[in-house]
Measured scan of single mutants.
Amino acid sequence: GREWTEQETLLLLEALEMYKDDWNKVSEHVGSRTQDECILHFLR
Rank of each mutant, 00 (worst) to 15 (best):
I39Q: 14
E8P: 02
T34I: 04
L16H: 15
L40C: 13
L10F: 10
A15R: 00
N24H: 11
C38M: 00
L10I: 10
G31A: 10
W23N: 02
L10E: 12
N24C: 11
E17G: 06
L40S: 14
L11A: 08
L13T: 15
W4P: 00
K20C: 04
Y19G: 08
E28C: 07
W23K: 03
D22W: 04
V26R: 03
Q35T: 11
L12H: 04
C38S: 02
R33T: 03
I39T: 14
E28P: 03
T9V: 09
R2G: 09
A15K: 00
L16I: 12
Q35S: 12
V30I: 06
E14M: 05
L40A: 14
E14D: 07
N24F: 06
Q35W: 05
W4Q: 15
R33N: 00
C38L: 03
E17Y: 04
G1H: 08
V26M: 10
I39V: 12
D22C: 08
T34K: 13
M18D: 09
G31W: 03
I39M: 14
T5P: 02
M18R: 13
V26S: 03
K20S: 07
H41D: 02
H29T: 04
D36E: 10
D21Q: 12
E17D: 12
K20D: 09
L12Y: 08
L16C: 14
L13Q: 07
E17P: 11
R33M: 02
H41T: 07
L40T: 14
R33E: 05
E37F: 00
L11H: 09
N24W: 07
K25L: 12
L13D: 11
K20R: 06
S32M: 09
E3H: 13
E8Y: 00
W4S: 09
L43I: 12
L12S: 02
L12C: 04
S27Y: 05
H41M: 07
R33C: 00
N24Q: 13
A15T: 02
L16W: 11
E6D: 07
D36L: 04
V30C: 05
T9M: 11
K20L: 02
E28F: 01
L12I: 06
G1F: 08
L11Y: 05
N24Y: 09
V30W: 00
E6Y: 07
E37D: 11
S27V: 11
W23V: 01
E14F: 00
V30Y: 00
H29K: 05
R33A: 05
A15W: 00
D36R: 10
T34E: 15
V30H: 00
I39S: 15
L43R: 15
T34C: 05
L16D: 06
T9C: 10
L11I: 05
T5H: 03
E3T: 14
E6R: 08
Y19K: 06
G31P: 08
G1Y: 14
T34G: 11
E3F: 13
E14A: 11
D36V: 04
D36P: 09
M18Y: 08
F42W: 15
K25R: 12
E28M: 00
S27G: 12
N24L: 11
Q35D: 11
K25P: 04
D36S: 11
N24P: 11
L16E: 14
E37Q: 05
R2T: 13
E14H: 05
L40E: 13
T5D: 09
K25Q: 08
E3I: 13
M18G: 06
D21C: 08
E17R: 10
Q35V: 10
K25C: 09
L10C: 14
E6F: 05
